[in-house]
Measured scan of single mutants.
Amino acid sequence: MPEGSASLQLAVGDRVVYPNQGVCRVSAIDVKEVAGQKLTFVTMRREEDGAVVMVPEGKVLAIGVRKVASAE
């Protein structure tokens, strides 16, 4: 991610809310080559049905992904 860009610090195992998809758990953060460029992807699995969603790390905030609020 370019320096100075806002990002959401995620780790494998974090629970997040993905708008219009529901609650997901981060299952992987991997670098993949797409069209000759190396990009970091956040892979999330929906808790409702296990569907897998992959989002480029740089788009996580723009999409509206946020961490699940704690009970505290």
Rank of each mutant, 00 (worst) to 15 (best):
Q21N: 11
V12P: 04
S27F: 14
L39N: 04
R66T: 14
M1W: 10
L39T: 10
V60M: 15
V26H: 00
V60A: 14
M44S: 00
Q37I: 15
S27Q: 13
V16P: 00
K32I: 15
M54I: 15
S27E: 15
V16Y: 05
S7Q: 12
Y18S: 04
V65G: 05
I63W: 07
V60F: 15
R45P: 00
N20S: 11
I63F: 09
V31T: 10
L10H: 01
R46V: 03
V65L: 12
K38F: 13
P19W: 07
V53D: 02
R45E: 08
D49Y: 02
D30Y: 14
M1R: 13
G64V: 08
A71F: 10
M1D: 11
P56I: 11
G4P: 12
V68I: 15
V12Q: 02
R45M: 11
V55H: 03
P56F: 09
V42G: 00
V55K: 02
V26E: 00
I29R: 02
A11F: 10
G22F: 04
P19V: 05
D14N: 02
R15V: 12
V34W: 08
A71I: 12
A11E: 10
K32P: 01
M44V: 02
P19Y: 08
L8W: 11
A35P: 02
R45D: 01
R66G: 07
L10S: 01
M44P: 00
G13K: 01
D14P: 01
I29M: 04
Q9Y: 11
S70E: 14
S70V: 10
R46T: 02
A69T: 13
R15Q: 06
L10G: 01
G64I: 10
N20A: 08
A35N: 15
N20M: 09
E57A: 14
P19H: 06
A35M: 10
A51H: 09
D49P: 01
A69I: 13
G64A: 07
D30M: 11
A28T: 05
R25Y: 12
E33K: 06
T43Q: 05
G13P: 00
D30A: 09
K38E: 06
C24H: 08
R15D: 02
M1K: 13
G58P: 07
S7C: 03
I63E: 14
G50N: 07
T40G: 03
E3I: 11
Q37P: 01
Q21Y: 15
E72Y: 08
A35C: 05
V31Y: 08
V65Y: 05
A28G: 08
Q9M: 09
E72G: 10
R46D: 01
V55T: 03
Q21M: 15
T43M: 08
K32A: 07
V42A: 01
R25M: 11
V42F: 08
R66H: 14
L8E: 07
P19S: 08
A35F: 09
P2M: 12
K59C: 15
V52E: 12
G50S: 04
V12C: 00
V34Y: 08
V12H: 01
P19A: 09
V12L: 06
R15E: 05
V53N: 02
S7E: 09
S5D: 09
K38H: 07
I63A: 12
G36S: 03
P19I: 05
V65F: 06
G64D: 06
K67G: 05
Q37N: 08
L8H: 08
L39K: 07
R15M: 13
T43D: 00
S27K: 06
S7G: 12
V34R: 05
R15Y: 15
V16I: 13
D49G: 04
S70T: 11
V42W: 03
G64L: 12
A51T: 09
P2I: 12
V65D: 03
E47W: 03
V55G: 03
V17H: 12
E33S: 07
V17Y: 15
F41Y: 10
A51Y: 10
V60Y: 09
T40W: 09
V68F: 07
E3G: 12
S70G: 11
R15W: 15
F41C: 00
R15P: 02
E33I: 14
A11C: 03
A35Y: 09
A71M: 11
P56W: 14
V60E: 04
I29A: 01
A51P: 02
E3C: 04
E72S: 12
Y18D: 03
V53L: 15
A35W: 09
C24Y: 15
A11Y: 09
G50D: 07
M44Q: 00
L39P: 00
A71V: 12
E47C: 03
G36V: 01
G4I: 12
G22K: 05
L61R: 13
D49M: 02
L8V: 09
V55N: 03
I63R: 05
V16M: 03
M54N: 05
A6G: 12
V60R: 03
V34C: 01
R45V: 15
V42Y: 13
N20C: 01
L10V: 09
Q21W: 15
K32Y: 15
R45K: 10
L8M: 10
V52I: 13
N20H: 09
A71H: 12
S27M: 15
S27C: 01
E48Q: 10
K67V: 14
R46M: 04
V26T: 01
Q9R: 14
K67C: 13
V31E: 08
P19L: 08
L61N: 12
G4E: 12
D49S: 03
V42C: 01
V68E: 07
I63Y: 08
P56A: 11
A62W: 06
L61A: 14
G58K: 14
A69N: 12
P2S: 12
Q9S: 10
G4N: 12
Y18V: 15
I63P: 07
T43F: 11
G4Y: 08
V60S: 04
D14W: 02
V23H: 05
E57V: 14
D30K: 08
L39V: 15
V68W: 06
K38T: 09
V60K: 02
V52Q: 06
A71T: 11
V42S: 00
V16Q: 01
V16K: 00
E57W: 15
M1C: 03
M1Y: 13
A28M: 06
V17E: 08
Q37M: 11
S70H: 10
Q9V: 11
N20G: 15
A51L: 11
P2Y: 08
M1S: 13
R66L: 14
V34F: 09
P2Q: 12
Y18C: 08
A28Q: 07
L39F: 10
G64N: 06
K59A: 13
V16R: 00
A51I: 09
G50F: 04
V31W: 06
S7R: 12
G13C: 00
V52T: 09
K38D: 03
G58R: 11
P2D: 11
V68S: 06
V53A: 03
L10D: 00
R45Q: 09
A71N: 12
N20T: 10
A35D: 14
A28Y: 05
M1N: 13
G64H: 07
R15S: 05
K67W: 08
V23M: 09
S27D: 12
S5Q: 13
A35V: 04
E57K: 08
V65P: 03
D49V: 02
K38A: 07
V12N: 01
V34A: 04
T40E: 01
V60H: 04
K67Q: 07
S5N: 11
G36R: 03
T40K: 11
S70Q: 13
V34I: 11
E57C: 07
G22C: 03
R15I: 14
A62V: 09
V23Y: 14
E3N: 12
V17R: 06
S7H: 11
M54W: 06
A11G: 05
G64R: 05
A51F: 14
C24K: 00
E72C: 11
E72V: 10
S7P: 13
T40M: 08
E47H: 03
D14F: 02
V23P: 04
A6E: 11
L39D: 04
I63S: 12
V34S: 05
L39W: 07
K32V: 14
T43W: 12
L61P: 06
V31M: 07
G36C: 01
P19C: 01
K59S: 12
K67S: 06
V16H: 01
A28E: 06
Y18T: 05
A35R: 10
V17A: 06
E33L: 12
L10R: 00
L10W: 04
N20R: 08
E3P: 11
M1H: 14
G13H: 02
Q37G: 07
V60N: 03
F41L: 07
N20Q: 09
E47G: 02
I63G: 08
V26Q: 01
V52R: 05
V55P: 01
A6N: 12
G58I: 10
Q37K: 14
V31K: 05
V23E: 04
R46E: 01
V12I: 10
I29Q: 00
G22H: 04
A51E: 08
G13Q: 01
A6W: 09
V65S: 05
K32W: 14
A6T: 11
E72H: 11
G36F: 03
V23G: 02
D14C: 01
E48M: 12
V42I: 15
R66V: 15
M44Y: 03
A28I: 04
G64E: 06
K32E: 05
E33V: 13
V23K: 03
S5H: 12
D30L: 13
M44R: 00
V60L: 15
K59I: 14
Q9F: 10
L39Q: 09
G64K: 06
R46L: 03
V17P: 02
F41M: 13
C24L: 10
K38Q: 09
D49W: 04
E57I: 15
A71W: 09
A35K: 10
V68R: 05
V23I: 14
Q9P: 09
E47N: 02
V60T: 04
V12S: 02
K59R: 10
K67Y: 10
I29D: 00
A6H: 13
K59E: 15
A28S: 14
Q9I: 10
M54A: 05
P19F: 07
D14V: 03
M44D: 00
A11W: 06
S70Y: 10
G4A: 13
G4D: 10
C24D: 00
S27A: 10
S7V: 12
E33Q: 07
K38C: 02
E48K: 13
P2T: 12
A51G: 10
A51W: 15
G13T: 01
P19M: 08
